[in-house]
Measured scan of single mutants.
Amino acid sequence: MEVRTIKVFTTVDNINLHTQVVDMSMTYGQQFGPTYLDGADVTKIKPHNSHEGKTFYVLPNDDTLRVEAFEYYHTTDPSFLGRYMSALNHTKKWKYPQVNGLTSIKWADNNCYLATALLTLQQIELKFNPPALQDAYYRARAGEAANFCALILAYCNKTVGELGDVRETMSYLFQHANLDSCKRVLNVVCKTCGQQQTTLKGVEAVMYMGTLSYEQFKKGVQIPCTCGKQATKYLVQQESPFVMMSAPPAQYELKHGTFTCASEYTGNYQCGHYKHITSKETLYCIDGALLTKSSEYKGPITDVFYKENSYTTTIK
């Protein structure tokens, strides 16, 4: 009895394709271990004539594949690729409408935090270190965002349907971005203890939790000093293409032309909904596939993004 075979390709990165001759009487799992086709788990399936010449994702289970996976995804987590594939199996079914010149995501599976993050990423200057993220990001900007969303979920250790947080998501993504040249110098002034300067680099240099107003941050924000008295913390120097200011959701007025974009969060910790506000020729609110415009805006804002380049204080 002759062994019926077909020729397929296996890959971990969709760049390096490895030619395989597979036995049609055995499952993919018996031949390769966990195997995925377009995100779908085909591990328990036997090869079919229609699979001839198709590319299958496999887990990096030998040295060659491990090197290829690390170079593309910059992670050695053995569960990463499987999590990416199972997320992709959902995100490829989502709709990605162009809204006001940006790629958004039609609401499904509690994905409003991903839509808000995706919209924000198209408006701030950011370059990702893992080629996987950078490639998928370019495709997302062009309207094909399924891979990018699935990668975000995998890097953030999230599953489809789980509630997510924009600030946490951005923080994970910033860790995989090139923020080497970003720098922030802060000064804390206390009447009792004097003053202390701190220099922050990388992710810490672009994120701040405690106030939404970048102007206020430049002037000074009140913080408790270690001595128990009130101290003032203010920005001395900022070198970065953008800054992200966050605070627990509270009524906040966004003035046209003073910011790049913002995240609105309605609801409580267990259950809520994100919308995205962007400042173009007027203010726009993007909620999944829905767009509304207004000249002014007041609502429960939790993150505001500002364009920056270089700032030095005039406070002496």
Rank of each mutant, 00 (worst) to 15 (best):
E2N: 13
R4F: 03
T5R: 13
K7W: 10
V8H: 07
V8L: 08
F9W: 11
T10E: 08
N14I: 10
I15N: 13
H18V: 06
H18Q: 09
V22S: 09
M26L: 14
T27A: 14
T27D: 13
F32H: 05
Y36P: 07
Y36W: 15
D38I: 08
G39L: 07
G39W: 06
G39H: 09
A40S: 13
V42C: 15
V42P: 00
T43V: 05
K44I: 12
I45R: 12
H51N: 05
E52N: 11
L59Y: 12
L65K: 07
L65W: 08
R66D: 08
E68S: 08
Y73M: 03
D77V: 05
P78C: 09
K92C: 12
W94T: 03
K95S: 15
G101K: 07
G101W: 08
G101E: 02
W107Q: 05
L114S: 00
L121A: 09
L121W: 07
K127S: 13
K127P: 11
K127T: 10
A132C: 07
L133C: 15
D135F: 07
A140H: 03
G143P: 04
G143Q: 02
E144V: 07
I152D: 08
A154V: 04
C156I: 05
N157T: 01
V160S: 02
G161L: 00
E162W: 01
V166S: 02
T169S: 05
N178R: 11
C182P: 02
V188L: 08
V189N: 10
Q196H: 14
Q197E: 13
T199G: 04
V203A: 15
E204M: 06
T211P: 03
E215F: 08
K218Q: 04
G220L: 03
Q230S: 12
L235K: 04
Q238L: 02
Q238Y: 06
E239Q: 11
F242G: 00
Q251F: 11
G257W: 04
S263G: 02
S263L: 08
G267P: 11
Q270G: 07
H273M: 02
T278K: 03
L283R: 01
T292Y: 09
K293Y: 07
K298I: 15
G299L: 04
G299K: 03
I301Q: 01
D303F: 00
V304E: 05
F305G: 00
E308L: 10
E308I: 08
N309E: 15
S310V: 14
T313D: 15
K316D: 15
K316P: 15
